[in-house]
Structures are given as structure tokens and as C-alpha cells.
């Protein structure tokens, strides 16, 4: 999968962390990814601007692939493909 066709990806699961402040979305994302298989895609919806730094760093730290970041100001949406090492 490449980042170019990320917009056409159907996520395996969606995690809505609206109203949650970091690092709570990171923690919830870790739990959600634990239940997915390698190659599955998790969509994470956040409302804490801190997630713009935290979620990409979290994905990199775990060895997952950050496919997409969509910052709409009050809402941030991320697509993460689960890697092999997590």
C-alpha cells in the first residue's frame, strides 16, 4: 500500500477519541491496534491538536505505517497501517 492511494482506503476499524486529551488517544490507539492484524488499517479521529505530533511519533515508534494525516483544525484524522513488529 502506498500513501498515494491512502484516500481510497477503507479502514478496518475506526477509533473516535473526540474530547480526549493526549496521551489518552495514543493509549487507546495502542489498545485498538493490538486487536488488529498486520496490514489492517486503523482510522483515528482526534480533537486534541497535540495528536498531530503524538500520533505520527507513536506510529513510527511502533513500526506502523502512517498512511494519512488530515488536519481540519478542530478535528484531526489519521490512518495507520499495522506493521509487522507490533
Amino acid at each position: 500500500m502506498t500513501k498515494d492511494n491512502a484516500s481510497r482506503i477503507e479502514p478496518t476499524e475506526t477509533l473516535d477519541t473526540s474530547g480526549m486529551l493526549c496521551p489518552l488517544p495514543v493509549y487507546k490507539a495502542g489498545l485498538a491496534l493490538k486487536g488488529l492484524k498486520q496490514g489492517d488499517v486503523l482510522r483515528i479521529i482526534c480533537t486534541d491538536p497535540g495528536s498531530l505530533a503524538d500520533i505520527p511519533a507513536f506510529a513510527h515508534q511502533r513500526g506502523d505505517v502512517l498512511l494519512k494525516v488530515d488536519d481540519q483544525g478542530t478535528t484531526q484524522t489519521f490512518l495507520i497501517e499495522k506493521g509487522s513488529g507490533s
Binding site: C22, P23, V26, Y27, D54, A57, H60, Q61
Partner: peptide, 10 residues
């Protein structure tokens, strides 16, 4: 809630 010490990646 078991929490890694390095939870906050930034």
C-alpha cells in the same frame, strides 16, 4: 490501565 513509561512519544 497498564501504561508504558514511554507512553508519550513526544
Amino acid at each position: 490501565w497498564e501504561t508504558p513509561d514511554e507512553l508519550c512519544p513526544v
